[in-house]
Design a protein around this nucleic acid. Structure first.
Length: 352
DNA sequence: CGCGTCACGGTTGAA
DNA sequence: GCTTCAACCGTGACG
């Protein structure tokens, strides 16, 4: 009821202040520093409601991020935008045509099996039977006369496999896909403990550490902080959907090199030398200083040291707006803003 | 009061 | 270059 009245955005393209005083950009993910902080605090035993208040993030968001983390081991948001990667590539169509020409009576499900058997497709980009039927009908018109018969036959034929869920077509190589889209782990993909799975198979070109260039720092922090959660810093999922065609993307040590450039768009390192120190280890966090200027772009400009000021939640003093408890050092922020579009938020660029 | 859920308005990026 | 579409986002209200 009355949900229509719920969201009142005072701003459109720039930051909006939520009920808790946190600043967010509508439609955009929280900075992963904050996401990480949420997970970190949860692992320290802090209740979600307290995390919500402390970081000034809605409890629904905290709940979502923690649920995803628990399920997938990733702190990262899903891939935003883009379209479904095509499975009916010209190559696939060509093979289908060939199969059909060789055996005009072939069933769509048989074509599907052959695509798999011949290695034209793998289980993740294998077209569904209905897709194959559509191809036969639409793209291989001169052979389509018997397709109607075939299609009607195949509907009653037990399909070897059900139509692949959307994310299977993505070849989304990590369980985050399952979490993000409520699709279970694809068949054949081992269900690993979240962090294990993520560590192994996430296209690490999107890794936070790769993007931020903070791996060594992070590892140092991890070693310094026994309480550091096992949140996967290796992944940063602001991924162009083209990255989902991982089957064709060579990985070098788990790094999808061709996409590093795209990653940079989401990189939260304006200067390439961020630190995570202030939020990686909760006890070391500096006291919160209200920012002199509220800027969500600061929140997204993300030198991570500036992101989370840590257990500085003052339940009785929260009068000053805080971009998610980010007390940014102005010089860093300015530096970051210079690279605006490159490291994340288009709004930053447009706002300047 | 805490928390899971979901409609909503929004952004994004491939087609 | 623009539009469309379908993915995802966090918020905020409900239960």
């Amino acid at each position: 009821m009355e949900r229509d009245l719920r969201i009142r955005f005072s701003h459109r393209t720039h930051g909006t202040v939520n009920q808790l005083g946190g600043v967010f950009v509508n439609g955009r993910p929280l900075p992963n520093a904050i996401r990480l902080r949420i997970v970190e605090l949860a692992q320290l035993g802090i209740r979600p409601c307290d995390i919500s208040r402390q970081l000034r993030v809605s409890h629904g968001c905290v709940s979502k991020i923690l649920a995803r983390y628990n399920e997938t081991g990733s702190i990262l948001p899903g891939a935003i935008g883009g379209s479904k990667p095509r499975v009916t590539t010209p190559t696939v169509v060509k093979h289908i045509r060939t199969y059909k020409q060789r055996d005009p009576g072939i069933f769509a499900w048989e074509i599907r099996d052959r695509l798999l058997a011949d290695g034209v497709c793998d289980k993740f980009n294998l077209p569904s039977v209905s897709s194959i039927s559509r191809i036969l009908r639409n793209k291989i018109g001169n052979l389509s006369q018997q397709n109607q018969y075939e299609t009607s036959k195949q509907t009653s034929h037990p399909q070897p496999q059900p139509t692949l869920p959307y994310n299977h077509l993505y070849s989304y190589p990590t369980p985050i896909a399952a979490a993000g889209t409520k699709v279970p782990t694809p068949p054949g993909m081992p269900t690993l403990p979240g962090h294990m799975a993520m560590h192994r198979i996430w296209p690490s070109s999107h890794s936070v550490t790769d993007i931020l260039g903070i791996r060594s720092i992070t590892e140092q922090q991890i070693s310094d902080s026994p309480t550091f959660p096992s949140a996967r810093l290796e992944e940063w999922s602001a991924i162009s959907r083209s990255n989902f065609s991982s089957a064709s993307s060579p990985l070098v040590n788990g790094v999808d090199k061709p996409h590093l450039e795209a990653d940079a768009k989401y990189s939260q390192t304006p200067n390439g030398l961020p630190t995570v120190s202030s939020y990686v280890t909760a006890p070391s966090i500096h006291p919160y200083h209200p920012p002199t200027q509220v800027s969500p772009y600061m929140g997204y400009s993300a030198t991570t040291s500036a992101y989370v000021t840590g257990p500085t939640w003052h339940p009785h003093s929260g009068s000053v707006l805080s971009p998610h408890s980010c007390d940014f050092a102005a010089p860093l922020t300015i530096k970051g803003m210079a690279a605006a579009r490159d490291f994340g938020h288009p709004v930053t660029a447009s706002a300047l």
